[in-house]
């Protein structure tokens, strides 16, 4: 009985002590990252190699499965594709001529700053946020590979997000569809400025908000929206997505609607990190 009594008390005291410790952690991390960063580095040193391993196992498994499934389909497809190759070769020749013309025109219009020219490096996604609220993810390159906070991340020709945190061997990317993520944007053709913001309540539709268009302009469905020149952290001219259902707000001064992201966030595996930062670029110029 006596033992039970003391046991009861000791675990109660432990509970109080651990609670106090947690509260100290919360209070500290509310104000500074000093506590979090070394902890994260220690954990990531152990966990990131495991994550990479898991990732390769997963890819290998899906690869094997897909291969088995698709062999017969591929044989059929191969025939069709051979036919297509012939016609495409012809088309390619024609397009090459167009490309020369395009290059010439680009020079003419001084479109050097198009994001095809930004220095980029590839990275693989090795983990996601552990909760359901956010869609941040972890990539397998960190400060050792030259990653820095605020570098832009793209995939499949569209903007994915921005690096918010860098460890030794990993970085955390905050995506534009995440709740509380904002980006300054503009219409590609007219340059009208707007703000793009993620919203968790639109997750099922796969859309995000686009707000603060001026009331006078017309925005059609499918208009391309790119990152704007005046954005603080995003490089200009990166495709974000396509406008949808933009209507005038109740205040009659602004218009807002939705945006269909250019990137398929559901099936993202590899991303490209633009290793040039906005401020650095401006400093050079």
């Amino acid at each position: 009985m006596r033992k039970k009594f003391s046991e009861f008390f000791s675990s109660k005291y432990i509970l109080i002590a651990v609670s106090a410790l947690c509260v100290i952690f919360i209070a500290t991390s509310f104000f500074t990252d000093r506590l979090v960063t070394p902890l994260k580095n220690v954990v990531s040193a152990v966990v990131v190699p495991l994550q990479k391993g898991m990732n390769y196992i997963g890819l290998w498994a899906t690869d094997g499965y897909d291969r088995l499934q698709e062999v017969s389909r591929l044989l059929d497809e191969n025939e069709k594709l051979n036919e297509q190759v012939n016609s495409l070769t012809e088309e390619n020749n024609r397009l090459k001529q167009d490309t020369y013309e395009l290059d010439r025109l680009r020079e003419l219009y001084e479109l050097d700053a198009k994001y095809a020219d930004y220095p980029k490096t590839g990275a693989r996604i090795i983990g996601t946020s552990s909760d359901n609220w956010y869609s941040t993810f972890t990539i397998d390159k960190g400060s050792d590979d030259g990653m820095e906070v605020d570098m832009n991340v793209i995939a499949g020709g569209g903007l994915v997000g921005i690096i918010t945190e860098v460890g030794k061997n990993y970085s955390v990317v905050k995506s534009i569809i995440e709740d509380g993520s904002y980006a300054s944007a503009q219409l590609i053709d007219t340059g009208d400025v707007c703000t793009v913001s993620g919203d968790i309540e639109l997750m099922d539709e796969g859309l995000i908000h686009v707000q603060y268009f001026k009331s006078g302009i017309t925005v059609r469905n499918g208009d391309k929206i790119v990152t704007s020149n005046i954005s603080e952290k995003y490089l200009p001219g990166i495709l974000i997505g396509y406008a949808k259902d933009v209507t005038t707000d109740a205040n009659n001064l602004t218009q807002s609607g939705y945006l269909v992201p250019a990137v398929d966030f559901e099936h993202l595996q590899e991303v490209l990190v633009i290793t040039q930062k906005k401020e650095a670029k401006e400093a050079i110029e």
């Binding site: 952690f25 991390s29 902890l39």
Partner: peptide, 30 residues
């Protein structure tokens, strides 16, 4: 295994959870 084990496992599981979630460190642990 009892309260102490539960608290021990809870603390470390929560700490790890916090490190990859976008919340305050120590909240899940608590």
């Amino acid at each position: 295994n009892g309260k102490n084990e539960g608290m021990f496992v809870g603390f470390f599981a929560g700490l790890l959870y916090d490190l990859s979630a976008s919340s305050l460190l120590g909240f899940s642990a608590l």
